[in-house]
């Protein structure tokens, strides 16, 4: 039950994009088309899941024993950057089709603050390994949900010729994202045990 609570908590209630406002850059940058939003979302799911595992290991098996947990931010950035690079190389070689789908989004994720946020939150909440990974999975799927939703709305708005000129493009996207965030606040009423 705790795991389920963590998952739903990260997926909806504390949605990274719309409630915690992490990773906003890619939220607006890659949400012009549903297709690319999907690719980005999948890449985030993939990398976040792996990164939660790696950052947990680095924190608990290197930083804690050495009592240098204040170095966590630097260590996590290092780990995530290296991990993304490594994953990119591996799938480029072994899974060309997957690389084609994720390829161009993987480097983008290196600098995605949602990833770092996820790692820091895992530590702050004192999650164990399984809980960390469930939290990461929920957060990443929540990211994908939000970005695909916004991309769908933006695609629809592109078609509209009624929009005032001043609102076209980014302004209306920001307004939309804000409205989506308000809508997602509704989930904070969900009562889950263990949160």
């Amino acid at each position: 039950m705790k795991l389920f609570s963590i998952f739903i908590g990260a997926f909806l209630i504390n949605n990274f994009l719309l409630v915690k406002f992490l990773g906003i850059c890619s939220f607006l940058g890659v949400s012009k088309k549903t297709e690319t939003a999907k690719g980005m979302g999948l890449a985030v799911v993939f990398v976040m899941f792996l990164a939660s595992f790696m950052t947990y290991g680095v924190y608990n098996w290197i930083l804690v024993p050495l009592k240098i947990t204040y170095m966590s931010t630097l260590a996590f950035v290092l780990v995530i950057a290296a991990l993304v690079q490594f994953v990119e190389m591996v799938i480029k070689k072994t899974q060309p089709s997957l690389y084609k789908a994720l390829g161009i989004y993987l480097p983008l994720i290196t600098t995605n603050c949602a990833l770092l946020g996820m790692a820091v939150i895992n530590i702050g909440e004192k999650y164990n390994l399984i809980e960390s990974m469930v939290n990461a999975l929920g957060a990443a799927l929540g990211y994908m949900l939000a970005i695909v939703l916004l991309a769908g709305l933006r695609e629809r708005m592109e078609e509209s010729d009624n929009m005032p000129l001043a609102f076209r493009g980014l302004p209306i996207s920001l307004v939309t994202a804000g409205l989506m965030a308000i809508a997602f606040l509704g989930f904070s009423g969900l009562k889950l045990g263990g949160i």
């Binding site: 930083l63 240098i68 630097l74 260590a75 490594f86 190389m89």
Partner: peptide, 18 residues
């Protein structure tokens, strides 16, 4: 020493792996 060695070491390991 600890931070320098651990972070530097991690960087070195990642560098070699990459």
């Amino acid at each position: 020493i600890y931070p320098a060695i651990s972070i530097g070491g991690m960087g070195l390991v990642f560098g070699i792996v990459l």
